[in-house]
């Protein structure tokens, strides 16, 4: 490699930093994230509250820490659901082809042409809001994109000579798919996962902002922003901490995915 993979290193560092913050937020926060303090409403950033307080006097830093936790929880769970089923479906349909592959991929293409927010909204309007429903909705929605990526990778390798060679040696289909072909798709799957994290964070934040995602009293970055909007003129700092946190988390993931893509080449 000519240059050090800046994107991968910096993106990885940002991601790990916020992951640690989020983990820390699960065991310790400066204040109780839900504790209200009528004496300290809409405080500007100060020594006691580095990011200020909100309209109920809750400490914004503590809420951002806790909120990052739910963000990561949602993102990781959705990517796991989408990644697992998507990889499975993509690998099998790509390898075996045939009408089932045709049907599933047609359906996939239609689903993929819709923005995930819209589909998530439809899901939520059917299932109701709440963090588990968000995970379920986004997880299912991510299946097609994983399936498509894995499928195209499997198809790329399916007819190569080393696969033929394995077949000639009488290796079973499952062994060929999982031991011979899929290791080649590793970087692509990781890239897809990084993009998936990126989209999941964005989708969760948007849904929560719209009031259809994580419900109070659970802290959520998107929700905080929608509350902050009402106080934009007199307490603009309320929006800054959660907003910048979302941006950095997304930036971290997108840099990681860029870096992985460069790694593939």
């Amino acid at each position: 490699m000519k240059k050090k993979n800046f994107n991968l290193i910096a993106g990885g560092a940002i991601t790990i930093f916020f992951l640690l913050i989020a983990l820390l937020g699960q065991i310790w926060t400066p204040y109780e994230p839900t504790a209200m303090d009528s004496m300290a409403v809409n405080l500007a950033p100060c020594a006691a509250h580095p990011f200020g307080t909100d309209n109920f006097g809750r400490d914004i830093l503590s809420r951002v820490m806790a909120g990052s936790g739910s963000t990561f929880f949602v993102a990781v769970s959705t990517v796991l659901i989408g990644g697992f089923f998507g990889t499975l479906i993509g690998a099998l349909t790509g390898y075996f082809g045939g009408w089932a592959d045709n049907m599933i991929m047609r359906f996939n293409d239609i689903l993929l042409s819709f923005p995930s927010i819209l589909l998530a909204l439809i899901f939520i309007s059917l299932l109701g809001s709440g963090s588990y429903n968000i995970i379920l909705a986004l997880g299912i929605l991510f299946i097609p994109s994983f399936a498509r990526i894995v499928r195209s990778e499997v198809i790329r390798y399916r007819d190569l000579d080393f696969v033929k060679s394995a077949r000639i040696m009488r290796a079973g289909h499952m062994r060929i798919i999982f031991a011979h072909i899929l290791p080649n798709a590793g970087v692509s799957i990781l890239t897809a996962a990084a993009i998936g994290f990126n989209n999941a964070v964005l989708a969760e934040a948007s849904m929560s902002y719209l009031g259809l995602g994580i419900q109070p009293p659970d802290p959520s970055l998107g929700r905080m922003l929608s509350e902050a909007q009402s106080y934009l003129s007199n307490a603009p700092w309320y929006a800054i901490a959660p907003g910048v946190t979302i941006i950095l988390i997304i930036l971290g993931f997108s840099m990681v995915s860029e870096g992985l893509r460069a790694l593939k080449e």
Binding site: L202, L232, A239, I246, E258
Partner: peptide
């Protein structure tokens, strides 16, 4: 790369 990381609703708030 940075702009792509900004959620549209937060971008809207900044513009507002």
């Amino acid at each position: 790369q940075i702009i792509m990381a900004v959620p549209p609703f937060f971008l809207g708030m900044i513009l507002t």
